[in-house]
Design a protein around this nucleic acid. Structure first.
Lengths: 198, 198
DNA sequence: CGTCTATTTGAATGTACTCAAAAGCGGTGG
DNA sequence: CCACCGCTTTTGAGTACATTCAAATAGACG
C-alpha cells in the first residue's frame, strides 16, 4: 500500500489499466540519498514530486538564516514548490531528503498535458490541493491561536509517524519555535504527566 | 469589471455563452446587510460564496473567545469554509459581512454537478484553490518568520484596498496580534518615517 | 574511540500580551 | 446643531512566553 501510487490515486478517482499506464508515461523515477536536495531556494523548479519511499522536508531559509519548515512528506505524499511552479519564479523553498528516498516526479508541462488528456487528473489534483489548503488553513489558525505546547501536542497527535522519523529540531522548525524552546516544552510536558500519574 | 463573475472566470478558462448561462443556473443571488452572518461556527454549511459587492471576513473564535481572521474577501473573491464543506462537519469558521454585500452562492452538491457537466470548472476551481494554497502558505511562512511590524507592512502592500475598508482591530486579528499591539506598531512606524523625512 | 551534530540547561533579553483607563470618532436623537 | 452614547483606538504599567547566546551533555556515525 505505501508507495503504491495507483491505489492512492484511486482513493479519489477511478482508473482503467490503460489510463494508469498513460499516467505513468508522464512520471519518472528518481532515487536520492539522505541530505540530497530535490529543490533549492532560488533555483528554477519544474516538478511535482510523489514520495514512494522516504521522508523529506520543504523549508524556507529567511534573511537571518533561520529555517522554517512548511511541510514534511512521507510515503504517498505529494510535495513541491507550488508558488514557483505556477508563477515560473525562482523557488521560495528548499526540499531536502531526510532519509534515502524513492521519488516519482512529473514535469509541470506534462502535468498540464495530463490534465488535457485525462481530465479526471484535474479532479484528482483539485482534491489533493484542496485537502492541502484545508490543512494549511488549520495550521495557520493553530499558529495564531494556540500556545507552542498545544501546537506540539496537536502535531504529535496528527503526525505520529513524522515524530518517530525526524529530529526534534526539525519539529521545532515546523512548529515555528526555537529548538531550545521545544526542549523545554518537552521537559515541562513530561513533568506534567509525571505529576498526573502520581 | 468588479463583480463581473464571467470576466473573472474567463481569466482562467474560456466560456461560451451557453456554458456561462448553464453555470449561472447553479448560482443564486443574495443580499446581506453589514453585520449579517453567511456562516456561523458550529452550523452546517453547504455553500461557496462569490462576492459581487461588499466586504467580508472569515474568522474563528477560539475557546478563550479571541477571534482570528483567516481571510478577508472583497469583490471577485471566493469565500467559504472549505473544511466544513468537504468533510460535512460543522463549520470551524464564522463568515460575517463587514459592509452590505451582494453575494452569489453555489451549493456544494451543485458544485459537484457543475464539475460533472462542465469539467472546465473543475479546472477553474483547481486554479482558484491552488492560488489560495500558495497565498496561505506564504502567510504561514510570514507568521512564522517575520516580526509583527514587517507582517503589517507586507499586509498593507499586498492588500491596500482591504486596509482602506476594514477597522484596525480586524487587521490586528488577521495579523495575529492584539489591537493594542497594532496601535503601538503603527505609532512606531510613523515615528520611523518621520525620522527618515527630517 | 573520536568527531560531529543534536539536545539540554542556564541567564539575560525582548516582543507582544493583559488589564485598565483615557482619548478620539461617528452616529443618533433631542 | 449640539450633546450624548457606544465603539475604536491609544496609552500606560506590569507580566509572560519564547528568544538569544553560550556552554555543557548526550547521542550517532564512521
Amino acid at each position: 500500500m505505501h508507495g503504491d501510487i495507483r491505489k492512492n490515486i484511486e482513493r479519489h478517482i477511478s482508473l482503467s489499466d490503460a489510463e494508469f499506464e498513460h499516467f505513468l508515461t508522464f512520471m519518472t523515477a528518481r532515487k536520492l540519498r539522505k541530505r540530497q536536495y530535490l529543490v533549492q531556494q532560488g533555483d528554477h523548479t519544474h516538478y511535482s514530486y510523489y514520495v514512494v519511499k522516504g521522508c523529506l522536508r520543504a523549508f524556507k531559509a529567511d534573511n537571518s538564516g533561520k529555517e522554517h519548515i512548511i511541510q514534511f512528506a512521507l510515503e504517498d505524499w505529494w510535495i513541491g514548490d507550488m508558488a514557483a511552479l505556477t508563477t515560473g519564479t525562482p523557488a521560495r523553498l528548499n526540499i531536502e531528503c531526510l532519509e534515502d528516498c524513492d521519488i516519482l516526479q512529473i514535469h509541470y508541462e506534462d502535468q498540464e498535458r495530463l490534465y488535457a488528456e485525462l481530465p479526471k487528473f484535474e479532479r484528482f489534483f483539485r482534491i489533493i490541493i484542496q485537502n492541502s489548503l484545508v490543512a494549511t488553513q488549520n495550521r495557520l489558525l493553530s499558529v495564531m491561536s494556540q500556545p507552542a505546547y498545544d501546537r506540539y501536542l496537536e502535531f504529535m497527535e496528527r503526525y505520529p509517524k513524522v515524530v518517530q522519523r525526524v529530529a526534534n529540531h526539525h519539529i521545532a522548525s515546523y512548529l515555528g519555535i526555537a529548538p531550545e524552546s521545544l526542549s523545554r516544552l518537552r521537559k515541562e510536558g513530561t513533568m506534567r504527566s509525571d505529576r498526573s500519574k502520581s
